[in-house]
């Protein structure tokens, strides 16, 4: 698993990557009450705001971690946003992407590096 400075995690799943938010991010956000996901089959560029997550108090964006195509989204977190707090690293994944260059993943942090990053 790899981690971004925007507190997203990336997991390789065959020729796709699965993207979600970290436990730290879920904890900082507080109770998630709304999630908006991108349309499948959307081409995205790294840094695009592809998803929105709202807690009781505030809204934040989820960015596309890499260039590629959104191929699948997790409707379960739209129906039950609280899942993002309950199981951020598992059931509450956000979307799956087909990325143009798998080696670009290497630029992101390992779990240990991420732990240092959040202090």
């Amino acid at each position: 698993m790899k981690f971004t400075e925007e507190h997203e995690w990336l997991r390789v799943d065959g020729d796709l990557i699965v993207v979600g938010i970290t436990e730290h991010a879920a904890e900082q956000l507080g109770d998630v009450v709304f999630v908006e996901l991108p349309e499948p089959e959307t081409q995205v560029a790294k840094g695009d705001e592809v998803s929105v997550i709202e807690s009781v108090k505030a809204a934040s964006d989820i960015l596309a971690p890499l260039d590629g195509e959104i191929v699948e989204v997790n409707g379960a977190i739209v129906d039950n946003p609280g899942l993002v707090n309950e199981d951020p690293l598992g059931e509450a994944w956000f979307f799956k992407m087909k990325i143009d260059d798998m080696s670009a993943l290497d630029d992101y942090m390992t779990e240990d590096e991420y732990k240092d990053f959040i202090g």
């Binding site: 507080g30 109770d31 009450v33 807690s55 009781v56 108090k57």
Partner: peptide, 12 residues
Amino acid sequence: PVQYPMGVMGEH
């Protein structure tokens, strides 16, 4: 204090 460990939803 904006929230305690219970969280905004739980506190509310």
